[in-house]
C-alpha cells in the first residue's frame, strides 16, 4: 500500500491516478496510522513552505513521517514535498524543515533571461545511474518543472540528477530509502510515468 499524504497542499489526484495506472494500491490520507501501516509513502505538495510545515504540524503528521522513514520504508517527496525534507528554506519565515536530510532550500537568483519561477520542460542530467527511480530513463530526458526554490543538500553524494537553469540545481535526491524529485513526475508524460512506475516497483 502506498500512502499519498493529503495535508491540504495542492492536488494529489494525478499522482494517485498515475500510480494506479501501474496497478499500485494507494490510499490518500492525512491519518498518521495509514502512513505507519503503509510500506511506501509519498509527500506531494505545492504552495508555500511555512504553510506546508504548519499543516503537517497541525495534522500531527510529522511523527508518522519520521517513523516511516526511520523504519527504512520507501519515501518519495515531490516538489515542495521534497524541499520539506531539508533543514530549512529561504522561502520560510518561521518554520524549519523536517531536517531528515542535511541541507537547505535556495531561491533562484533573478538574472536576465532566467525567469523565476523556473517553469516548463527541462532535462535531467543523471549523476547516479544506479538510482532505482531512473531505471530505463535516458540521460537528458525532459520532465516538467514549476518552482522558484530548489534543494541544496549538504552531502553531494545523494544527488542523483541535476538540471541546468543557469546553475545546475538538484532535481533528484536519493539516500537509502528516501527519494525526492523537484519536478512533477505526474505531469511529465511518459518520462514521469516511468519514474513513478519505478517507484511502484521498488521493494
Amino acid at each position: 500500500m502506498i500512502a499519498i499524504i493529503d495535508y491540504g497542499m495542492g492536488n494529489i489526484h494525478s499522482v494517485q491516478k498515475a500510480l494506479e495506472h501501474f496497478g499500485a494500491k494507494t490510499v490518500v490520507t492525512n491519518n498518521p496510522k495509514d502512513i505507519e501501516t503503509s510500506d511506501k509513502a509519498i509527500l506531494p505538495g505545492v504552495g508555500a513552505f511555512d504553510d506546508a510545515m504548519s499543516e503537517l504540524k497541525k495534522q500531527k503528521l510529522i511523527a508518522a513521517l519520521n517513523k516511516h522513514i526511520r523504519q527504512k520504508k520507501t519515501f518519495l517527496g515531490i516538489c515542495l514535498g521534497m524541499q520539506l525534507l531539508l533543514q530549512n528554506s529561504e522561502e520560510a519565515n518561521k518554520s524549519d524543515g523536517l531536517g531528515i536530510l542535511e541541507g537547505e532550500v535556495r531561491r533562484f537568483l533573478d538574472r536576465k533571461g532566467f525567469a523565476v519561477p523556473h517553469m516548463g520542460w527541462n532535462q535531467l542530467k543523471i549523476k547516479n545511474k544506479n538510482c532505482p527511480l531512473l531505471k530505463d530513463t535516458p540521460d537528458n530526458s525532459y520532465v516538467y518543472f514549476c518552482h522558484s526554490y530548489y534543494p541544496q543538500p549538504k552531502d553531494k553524494n545523494i544527488i542523483a540528477a541535476v538540471t541546468d537553469y543557469g546553475v545546475d540545481f538538484t532535481s533528484i535526491l536519493w539516500q537509502d530509502n528516501i527519494y525526492g524529485v523537484q519536478f512533477h513526475p505526474e505531469k511529465s508524460q511518459q518520462t514521469g510515468l516511468k519514474i513513478l512506475e519505478n517507484f511502484v516497483n521498488l521493494c
Binding site: 489526484h13 514549476c146 505531469k187 508524460q189
Partner: peptide
C-alpha cells in the same frame, strides 16, 4: 477539471 486531471499526465 477532475476528469481531465485523471486522464492527462501533463500540466
Amino acid at each position: 477539471v477532475e476528469e481531465i486531471a485523471q486522464n492527462i499526465f501533463m500540466p
